[in-house]
């Protein structure tokens, strides 16, 4: 313990971050790391003049990242006398880029809509993002008009891959993950530069440049198994705007182009639900269903068991039959009862 002349009142994380933001906005020419560590509240208490400040420096690096994550434009300026030197780098937050543009205003109706949009995210990392966005929106002091009652639309992004993919997109990083392709039973490693994450037909998809295939590919987030890791040293230039729209347009075109014809057992779950989603087919009890991926549709239709009978295309017939047989055969009675429990009489 080094003796400090000041009363060491414990500085909380938010106080240190707040003080850092204030100090970096207040400076025109920027502060060097040494300035910051020796003078800013929360660092100065732990700074040792002429001593080893390695852990404090690491703290500062983490704090910088955390601040940038919040959308605060923390800039680095190289010294004109000593370019390339880390020692004389200066840090600052340009107030013009920090402040919400002066001509931006939101009406009470817009605030109401934005609150509803934020509330759509109930779980996962995006609920924290939208909560912070709302806090910033509230700082404008605009009261929202009355919300629509009895109404709770929600989007779920509970796939664990959501957050790392979002971060990788923001940072232009290439990622790798294990992907269990629909219709296959063993996952395969993919190396992807993520371009967009889109919700289509109720499923989250990743749209990205497949580094091995040299082309863009679409992946289902629900089929990404295991962690998404960044590939060290591999970055891409930030993608141009409109990647999300492009991904959706591709999925829409695919969906339009592919139609399955099925019959549904009258009065069954399949009849009620699939008839609503598709259009009536030529024959009685037949339904035309558009789809994007034959294996995903086959998975879904196999779930309906005998309630659905596929008429076309033949790839879908084969895929559904194959699934039903696999399920049937993998659930054949076990050779010996592994547990002393009576089997149901059959």
């Amino acid at each position: 313990m080094s003796p400090t002349p000041e009363q060491p009142h414990p500085v909380t994380v938010e106080e240190r971050l707040f003080s850092l933001v204030l100090a970096l906005i207040a400076t025109q020419i920027g502060l060097t790391k040494a300035d910051i560590l020796s003078t800013v509240q929360g660092y100065r208490q732990r700074f040792r003049v002429g001593g080893d400040n390695a852990s404090l420096e690491r703290q500062f690096e983490r704090d910088k990242d955390d601040i940038r994550e919040l959308g605060i434009p923390l800039e680095t300026i190289e010294s004109p006398d000593d370019p390339g030197s880390n020692h004389h780098l200066r840090y600052r937050i340009p107030k013009g880029l920090y402040d919400l543009p002066a001509d931006i205003a939101f009406s009470p109706d817009e605030i109401m809509l934005l609150k509803l949009a934020a509330a759509v995210w109930r779980e996962g990392s995006l609920s924290a993002e939208s909560r912070r966005a709302l806090t910033k929106l509230n700082s404008l002091g605009i009261d929202s008009s009355d919300p629509v009652i009895g109404y709770a639309p929600s989007l779920r992004a509970r796939e664990a891959s959501f957050e790392p993919l979002g971060k990788a997109m923001d940072r232009g990083q290439v990622v790798a993950f294990l992907y269990l392709k629909p219709g296959e039973s063993a996952p395969r490693r993919r190396v992807i530069a993520p371009l967009a994450v889109v919700l289509h037909e109720g499923r989250w998809h990743l749209y990205g440049a497949d580094q091995d295939a040299g082309a863009t590919r679409t992946f289902l987030l629900a089929r990404i198994v295991g962690p998404v890791v960044t590939v060290p040293g591999r970055t891409i230039a930030p993608a141009e705007d409109g990647q999300g729209e492009r991904a959706l347009a591709e999925l829409d075109a695919l969906w339009q182009a592919q139609v399955a014809l099925i019959t549904v057992e009258p009065g069954s779950d399949a009849a009620v639900r699939l008839s609503k989603r598709g259009e009536p087919g030529p024959a009685e009890d037949s339904v035309e269903l558009h789809y994007t991926d034959v294996n995903i549709l086959a998975d879904e239709l196999a779930g309906y068991g005998p309630e659905v009978y596929v008429l076309s295309p033949s790839t879908l017939i084969d895929a559904v039959l194959d699934r039903l047989r696999r399920v049937r055969d993998s659930h054949a009675p076990l050779p010996e009862t592994p547990l002393p429990r009576p089997e149901a009489a059959r």
Binding site: L22, A23, E69, A117, A118, W121, E129, R132, D170
Partner: peptide
Amino acid sequence: AIDDSPRFSAREAAALIAGL
């Protein structure tokens, strides 16, 4: 130092836009 509301981060704006 500060007298104005902070901007949204890219991901905060994206969350609201997708919600809309």
